[in-house]
Structure formats: structure tokens, C-alpha cells
Design a binder for these strands. Sequence first.
DNA 1: AATGAATGAGGGTTCATTCAT
DNA 2: GATGAATGAACCCTCATTCAT
Lengths: 225, 225, 225, 225
Amino acid sequence: MPLDKFIARTDEAPAKRERRKEARPGELLDAALDLFVEKGFAATRAEEVAARAGVSKGTLFLYFPSKEELFKAVVRENISGRFKEWNEEFETFEGNTADMVRYCMKVWWDRIGNTRASGITKLMFSEARNFPDITAFYHQEVIVPANMLIRRILQRGVDRGEFRELDMDYAVFSIIAPMIFLIMTKHSLAPCVPREYALDPERYLHSQVETVLNGICARPDGKRP
Amino acid sequence: MPLDKFIARTDEAPAKRERRKEARPGELLDAALDLFVEKGFAATRAEEVAARAGVSKGTLFLYFPSKEELFKAVVRENISGRFKEWNEEFETFEGNTADMVRYCMKVWWDRIGNTRASGITKLMFSEARNFPDITAFYHQEVIVPANMLIRRILQRGVDRGEFRELDMDYAVFSIIAPMIFLIMTKHSLAPCVPREYALDPERYLHSQVETVLNGICARPDGKRP
Amino acid sequence: MPLDKFIARTDEAPAKRERRKEARPGELLDAALDLFVEKGFAATRAEEVAARAGVSKGTLFLYFPSKEELFKAVVRENISGRFKEWNEEFETFEGNTADMVRYCMKVWWDRIGNTRASGITKLMFSEARNFPDITAFYHQEVIVPANMLIRRILQRGVDRGEFRELDMDYAVFSIIAPMIFLIMTKHSLAPCVPREYALDPERYLHSQVETVLNGICARPDGKRP
Amino acid sequence: MPLDKFIARTDEAPAKRERRKEARPGELLDAALDLFVEKGFAATRAEEVAARAGVSKGTLFLYFPSKEELFKAVVRENISGRFKEWNEEFETFEGNTADMVRYCMKVWWDRIGNTRASGITKLMFSEARNFPDITAFYHQEVIVPANMLIRRILQRGVDRGEFRELDMDYAVFSIIAPMIFLIMTKHSLAPCVPREYALDPERYLHSQVETVLNGICARPDGKRP
DNA sequence: AATGAATGAGGGTTCATTCAT
DNA sequence: GATGAATGAACCCTCATTCAT
């Protein structure tokens, strides 16, 4: 590693200090996400966030003007504009809609549920009323688009005769509620409860999605197409 | 006026002040529940709780040695030990198990979901990791018994051939997840979001429970007994 | 002093704690005035003010919501509505106007210049631009009325033929400038300079006022009436 | 671009950067004077000074080891050691002493009162007690010599029979007080007060000096020689 | 020489908790 | 028991100062 100094650097690789500077906001947001999820906004001390990011208290405020702005940045940073991309992914999906639902659940688990991003969901449910504006933003940027996405999938099933007629405004929650429940459990209760009570996420999701699919499929014999 | 003290009072009609005195802890717990649910534990000020209960700051600490103990008391007080009683209620339930599930949901909504007690659930999910011991207590006193109760009902359905074979450890969450989701939404997002996005709880619960029943019922033609 | 406890108290004399409560704001304002004058607003620590008033840091904020409000209260508290009373005093003054000017100077010295209230003047000149709103208030409540008062006295001299015609808008400063200079010197330089340079206020004021009276009196022989 | 360094430059026309380099301390002192006068020492941030001087925070500390030293340098730099030169100017003054006083006032106004250097006076009166040593220095380098200069002028008037006998220790303040008052007003209150209350400096100084001259002149008919 | 990222002591403010009344 | 004035530890945030680049 000391040899580094003698190795020519391309223009893309900035000097150490500069590199750190660019990395700082991300490191701080990472640390903040973890701590906010674990302890809540109010109970998390700014200095802790800084320490976990490996910097001093003052440095945090070099990048975020206040603890509240840090919180908002954490949420914003982790709210993906990924729904559009996903929409397209599902637009071109071939195969039956039940598989689409299964695939949707898996993608969600891989990209959100099983990542640190899932902490944002926990955070929003816990802190929503202390941050009404960020909650409104989250609702509009995450909740509404997510509902739309699910709704479009279910509608496809109905349109193709795979699913029965559904009260669509509420049917979406048959998909969403199990996701939220899993996240809340994972971030809240699980860490405080004996290991034997832990959920196996894959098995949990499988169980939930199959029950729901069973519940909404159209075939009179209950079999799925 | 000081003579008041020496005037005999009947036991049946205690003077207002005395009645209030006995009610104090309850009023404080009520106020605390509301505020903890609304703003979180850390962001709720002890003085606010006292003020909402109509007493002074000092009085709060007369009844609860610390804010933490107040929190724990709030949880303890609002944890229904009613599962045993409910168990018996269901023990003697006559009729098919699908109706039993519907009835179970309704009872829960009337006695928990639609009351201030539902705030405890929100509270536990939000604050769990800051109160590991009370979380463990809650898990043992609420979650495990509730799971057992649901499990017994589902098992009855399976035993009677009404429901198909279920992965019972996870099937219970098909009932529980919609409940938790409803509560979290009601206490977190709903107050920050335009009215038109509000859930109609009855319609929501109906939609969820029917889908699940559809999903787990045994009849090959998909009809429920 | 311990005997105090056994001496009957009238209703007007509140219990110790209560008496202190009423005295607190005044004690704090006193302490704050001294320190703000001595060190300036920014360099004075809230805790110092509290300590000098014999209370803890927290207590200060029980009475004043912020250091800035404390500053404003200090100024407001020491800005007398005394000009009206003085006006009337001078309205009924009998004797020649030169004596009136001398009397005015003496009254000012006794009631303002030689008291802690003179610190306010120092404070305003030092901090004016950091507190534009309080400065505007001070201008309107103190400077303008004071100018008016002086002006009325000088005008009386002119009207009675005792003083020559004066550029009245500026003549008032012949009285005011020596006052301000004395105060600024007393609070700023004097404490940092060897004793032998100290001004003797009475002699200073006498010297200034007699020169000015000499300068404005009407008698062609330079004698005052 | 790195080759620049090796390209010879003539001494007559130094590159812009070099010229600026030499000017740095002066630019910093200028910026500091303005800001210290405007906001006070404590409320002025080092970074602001640097920014106004067009350099970075670090550069400030290259030239001045601390903010305090910067303050002291500002005072030192702006203290004219011109009293000696002025003394000589007045030594050779021909004409009556009243005109000498008028000329003195004008010279002061042109070279100090009406320039940024007047800020130093404001600064000293505001910050004196936080910088006792620099205040002592200022007293010795500015106040005492200035007093001497005025005193010598007044003494000339007395010696030549133009002025009456004066309490000389205090008579000097008849000249100095109006100057100080003008400066304090200009830097403190004027910027916070409606335009119509602004002093016209020339008219103000004229009014003050004529009144004083009137007050100290010897001619029994009140006329000045 | 110049920069500006990083530091951390310092100070304003909050609030759970105490205790004299 | 009830009150609310007082406390002081804790926490957010600022900014003079340092130092790697």
C-alpha cells in the first residue's frame, strides 16, 4: 500500500484528501441511516453519526446544515427513482401474471427488502409525524408509484382472466402489507427477540405470496394457470 | 373552605378532587400514550404529558420515577391480557372456521385496532430497539399469545378440513400482517397525507381477509364451505 | 437572620422562593447589563450572566427565551419613559435658561450618566448594527425625545432673547455630544488607562457646559444674563 | 502551464498574482477593519474577513497568527503616527488661532473622520475592555498625542490673548467630544435610522466648532478676532 | 505560498429530574 | 399530595485554528 505513492495516477483518481471529500456525504448518509433506523431520529446523536462515518462532529455539519437536513437527505438519497425502470421491466414481462407477482416480490426483496434501503421504510413509519414534509415527499415519490406498479400488475392478471375481479384500491395491499410487515419486524422486533422467533424471509415471502395468489386467482378449481 | 376537610363524605359519592386523585395515573398514561404515539418517545416532553393530563410536571414524577418507567407503564397498561378470555371465546365458537377468522378480525378491530390501544403497536415497532426489555416483555405477552390464538384458529380450519394444509409457522402472518399494516398506516402516514388516500378500515380488512380465506380454503372449486 | 423564620410575616411578604422568583428577572437584567457593557454582547456568555445573578445557566432561559431576547430586555428595561416627566419638570422651570441647561446636565448626570443606566448608551453605540430593530426602538424612545427636550430648552433661551439665533437641528448636539463622550470614555477607555488620565466628571461637565453657554449666549459682552 | 514559473518577468511589471501577494496583508487589514467596525470583533468571522479580502481562510492565518493579532494589527496599521507631522504643520501656521482650530477640524475630517480610519475610533470604544493592552497602546499613541496637539493650539490662543483663560485639561474635550460623537453616530446609529435623521457632517462640525470658538474667545464683545 | 477539509473546544439551548414550599 | 422554580447534564451547532495537499 505505501507503494501507492509511486504508482502513477490517472486524472480520474484524485488525491486522497479529495477522494475522501467526495466520499464523505455518502459515508455520513450511510452511518446516519443505520443509526436513525436503530434508535430513531431524536435519540441519535449527531456525534455518533460522525463517529461511525469516521469523522469528527464538526465535519458532519460541513456537509449537512443540520441534523434535520441530514435526516431528509438520508430519506431522499435512498428513495430511488427506480420505479420507472421497474415499470418498464414489467411492461415487457412475458409469462403468466402469478409469476410476475412472484418475480416482483423477489426483485423487491433483492433490491430493497434485503438491503439497507429497507431501513427507510422503517424510518418513515416511525418518524412520519415529526417530518410531515418529508413524509409527503415519500408518499408521492415512493408510496403512490409503488401502489401504481402493483396495481398495474394485478390489473394485467384481471385483464388476462388470470385473476378474478378485484377491489383494486385495496387489493394492492395484499402484496404490500406482507412487505411492510417483514421490514418492520426485521428492524424492530427481531433484534430484541430470541433467535428462534426470527423469520426466514424467503420462506415468509413464499408463504404470503402463494396464499395471496391462491386467493385471487380465477380458476374455479383453485389451480393457478 | 378549610373546613371541607372535616366534613364527612360518603363512600359512594367521592368529591371530585378525590376521584381525580385516584384517576391521576390513568390520565397520565392516557396522555403519554397519545403523545408517544404521535411524536415518539424521545421527542415527547414530560411536561407535555403532564400538561395534557392536567397536572404539573412534578406530579408526573410522583407517580412514575422516570420517563422510561412511564413508557414501560404505558405499554404494560395497554397490553391486553385478554388473549386467555378470547381463547375461551373461540374455544366455544360454533360455525365454520372462515367465519371464525372474520369474527376474530372484527373483534380485534373493535377492541384494539380501532381504539387508542392500537397506538401501543405503533409504539413498539417504532421504539423497540430503545427498549429491549419492554420489547421482550411485549413479545412474550402480546405477540406470542396472539400468534398462538391465530394459529389455533387456523389449525381448527385445517383439522376440520376447511383449510388446506398450511405452513403454520408462517400462515399466521397472513392474518397478522394486514392488521399491523393498517395500524402503522393509521398512526404514521395517514395523518400526513391527503384525505383521499386514507384507507377505509372496514373495507380494507374485508378485502384482506377474504383474499386470505380464499387463499387458504380447501375446497377444490375455490368456494368456501 | 435565622431568627427571620420566627418573625411573623405579613401577606405582602411572600415566601422566600416566591420572592426570589419575582426578583429573578431583575437580578438577571442587572447582571446582564454589567456584562454586556463590559465585554459586549457576543463575548458575554449566558452562563456568566446567570452566575453573576446567582443562578444556574438553565434558570436564565426560564425567564428569557434567548440571549438575544435578554439583550433586548436589558435595553428596554433601562430605557425610561422618563422624558415626559422631565419635560414637565422643565415646563415649569423658573429662572434663566442658562441655569436650566446647567440643571438639565446635573439631572442627567445624577439619574443617567452616573448610574448603571449609562451602560445602555455604551451598549447601543457598540452593538447598534447587530440589533437594528432594538436600535430603531432606542432611537425612537430615547434619542428623538431627548433631542426634543434639549431643543425645547434651547428654543426657550432663544425665544427669551437669552441665546443667540441657533442652527437648532445641530445646536442640540452641543449639549448631547459632551454627555455621550463622557459615557463612552467612562465605560471604554477609562478602565484600561492609568488613573491619572481619568476624567473628573463634575469638572468635565462644568467645563463643557460653561463653554457652550458662553458660545451661545446673546449678550454682546459675552456675559450671561 | 507549470512552465509559467520559469518564465522570466520584468521587475517593472510584476504579474498580477505577484502584485496581489504583496498586497495581501493590506487587503486583509482593510476587510477586517470594515467588518470589525460593522459587527464587532466577536461577531466577525475570520472566514468572512478572508472572503472579503478575496483569499481563503487558511491564508488569513498565514499572515496573522490569530484573530486577536489581526485585531491588533488592524488598530496598529490605522493609527496615524501623523501627529508629529501635524504638529509641525501647526507650528508654522500663520493667522489667528480660531482659524487654526477650524483648519484643525477640517484636516481631521479630511484625513481621519471622513475615511475608513475613523472606524478605528469606533472599534476602540466598542472593544476597549476586551483588549486592554491594545487600548493602552491606542491611548498612548493616539489619544495622548491628539490631546497634546489640541492643547498646544488652544494654549497658543490663550498665550496670544485670543482665547480666555481655560481649564486646559478639560478644554481640549470641547474639540474632541464633537469629533468622537460624530464618528460614533456615523458608525453605529446612522446605518440603522431613517435617512432624514442623518447628520450632515460638514454642517455639524461647523455648528460645533463655531459655538465652541464663541465660547472660548476672549473679546468682551463676543466677536472673534 | 495558497487552499479548504477537518478538527474539537466552546457556548446556546433543552429538558428530565429534584425539592422547597 | 401537588406544585413549579431551579438545576445541570446533554446535545446541537459554530468557528478559530490546523495541516495535508
